[in-house]
Design a protein around this nucleic acid. Structure first.
Length: 494
RNA sequence: GGCGCUAUCGUCUAGGGGUUAGGACGUGAGAUUCUCAUUCUUAAAACACGGGUUCGAUUCCCGUUAGCGCUACCA
């Protein structure tokens, strides 16, 4: 079975049998391109690499693939770093920037040229595009037709000395197949005729993706290439490159893609695709990480789903990676979020909540020590999102809040109830009894009996008066959280 | 179009030649409660289709269909 490749069997290619030994500690990398923020798919790839490296005590390298100067920006680099930090993913070496390693790729390209694996191509870009269009129209596979591959040595020399700018292409074998053993998909094979003579170095000397990736992966001694399944079709070209460069093949492991609810590739119209957007939406990082880890991977013991980073690291392995794409299920993420918020100690939650207050313009009350943590602990069991602390629970932390009109209509519309609540406020103010859960409850129930109304009606009304919400913890716990003065004040305003 | 990958409840998945096909999220119902959430009980919900192989296929093989990916001097 292709799934149990954990033991790193010898990798096979048609042409070479060289592999890395399986004794060394693994070296992995996350290699984002800073042409966009850190998106969900990239984050999961990063997470899997991190999990794998940590599981085996290996090394994780961060490499920024910024050879596309047009589209790469420093802001995106910062954004990616920020996203990784939020997820708690750290690395051991780097970040390395490919833009600072251009000489390496150029040398590799020239080495390939010298060894006969590459050749100069003088075809103009427009010309190529046109040929491609024609091929497309005629229903042929639009791959490079090899015009310059057939050029005689003399012709090539002539063009070079004339100063023609040329790209260097890789000469793909015209027959045979290129195959690799994928740690998740098993053996994957491509006919060489399906592969085109891809460009190694552009005419301006800038390397193309395949060259820079393989050069770096060799130079950085990567043992495992763990990346999105969208790279499966790129892999044979890269395998060819390893072979031409005389390097051992790493273990390839491709991870299925993450789709939106409509099963199409995750994109902006599915909502947030940037991981930082989830922070902004009130998701706790551990929840997001846990959710992401289980998208396309299942631990051996699949019965437990809420897993700490330690458990994740402990259990992670390539054999649990799924073969099929996974749909990003937002309700499940929200469930993880409530689980984590509930489990977080107040101290851990408070800084995150403070961020939400800042965003919502809430200035929290200054009260006695311990109050904040106690109140957060009281509320966190019914929170589904960090934002709840800034909206639904706002009245616990600030006197500046507005009552939910629906709640008022439901529980506070009767004038008689409001009058009794004002009276309740007075009784709390003048009572000599201790302001405790039992004491406040007794006073309320007595007052309800005196007035011939149900205690529940008073309780529900009081809840709205005190919190502005129809939904809150037990009323008397709410009173304790608010304190006598606030309870009295808010009741009297009824 | 070509090539590649994939196919178990709505979603994430477990399983695997003979199972009442299991779990989780979500959904419905009920119980509890001062509201809501929680909690508890419970219900509905799946092996894409067609051929083989086999005593027996959801499981193995082939095909079909569908989805996704790749198909650049982007990464």
């Amino acid at each position: 079975m292709a799934r149990n490749i954990e033991t790193r069997l010898p990798l096979m290619t048609e042409v070479t049998g060289i592999t890395h030994s399986n004794s060394a500690k693994p070296r992995l990398r996350f290699a984002p391109s800073p042409t966009g923020y850190l998106h969900v798919g990239g984050a999961r790839t990063a997470l899997f690499n991190w999990l794998y490296a940590r599981h085996f005590g290996g090394t994780l390298i961060l490499r920024i693939e910024d050879t596309d100067f047009e589209r790469s920006t420093d802001e995106m680099v910062d954004g990616i770093l920020q996203g990784l930090a939020w997820l708690g993913i750290d690395w051991d070496e780097g970040p390395f920037f490919q833009s600072k390693r251009m000489d390496l790729y150029k040398a590799a390209g020239e080495r390939l040229l010298a060894s006969g694996h590459g050749y100069y191509c003088f075809c103009a870009k427009e010309e190529l595009e046109q040929r491609r269009a024609v091929a497309q129209a005629e229903g042929r596979t639009p791959k490079y037709d090899g015009t310059c591959r057939r050029l005689s040595r003399e012709e090539r020399e002539k063009r070079r000395t004339e100063g023609a700018a040329g790209a260097i292409r890789f000469a793909v074998p015209e027959t045979g197949v290129t195959a690799f053993q994928d740690a998740v998909f098993g053996r994957v094979e491509f006919a060489n005729t399906e592969l085109e003579d891809f460009v190694l170095l552009r005419s301006d000397g800038v390397p193309t993706y395949h060259l820079s990736v393989v050069t770096d992966d060799i130079e950085m001694k990567m043992t495992h290439i763990l990346r999105g399944a969208d790279h499966i079709s790129n892999t044979p070209k890269q395998v060819l490159l390893y072979e031409a460069l005389g390097a051992a093949l790493p273990v390839f492991a491709h991870v299925p893609l993450i789709l939106g609810a409509d099963k199409t590739r995750l994109s902006k119209r599915h909502g947030a695709t940037s991981v930082m957007a989830y922070r902004d939406e009130g998701i706790v990082p551990e929840a997001f990480r846990n959710f992401l880890a289980l998208l396309g991977w299942t631990p051996k013991d699949s019965s437990k789903e809420v897993l700490s980073d330690r458990e994740l690291v402990q259990q992670f392995g390539l054999d649990g990676i799924s073969h099929s794409n996974a749909v990003f299920d937002r309700p499940k993420l929200d469930w993880f979020n409530t689980e984590y918020i509930r489990a977080y100690p107040a101290e851990r939650l408070i800084p995150l909540i403070e961020e939400e207050w800042k965003k919502a313009g809430v200035t929290p009350l200054q009260r006695e020590p311990g109050w904040l943590a106690r109140t957060v602990d009281l509320l966190k069991t019914r929170a589904r999102n960090l934002k709840d602390f800034a909206d639904a629970f706002r009245a616990f932390f600030s006197d500046d809040f507005e009552a939910d009109p629906a709640a008022v209509t439901k529980f506070l519309s009767e004038a008689s109830i409001r009058e009794i609540l004002v009276e309740l406020g007075s009784r709390y103010a003048t009572s000599i009894e201790e302001f405790s859960e039992q004491g406040t409850e007794k006073i309320l129930r007595d007052l309800a009996a005196e007035n011939g109304v149900k205690a529940g009606a008073l309780i529900n009304g009081a809840r709205v008066a005190l919190t502005g919400q129809a939904v809150a913890p037990s009323l008397f716990a709410v009173m304790m959280a608010l304190g006598k003065d606030r309870v009295v004040g808010r009741l009297k305003r009824c």
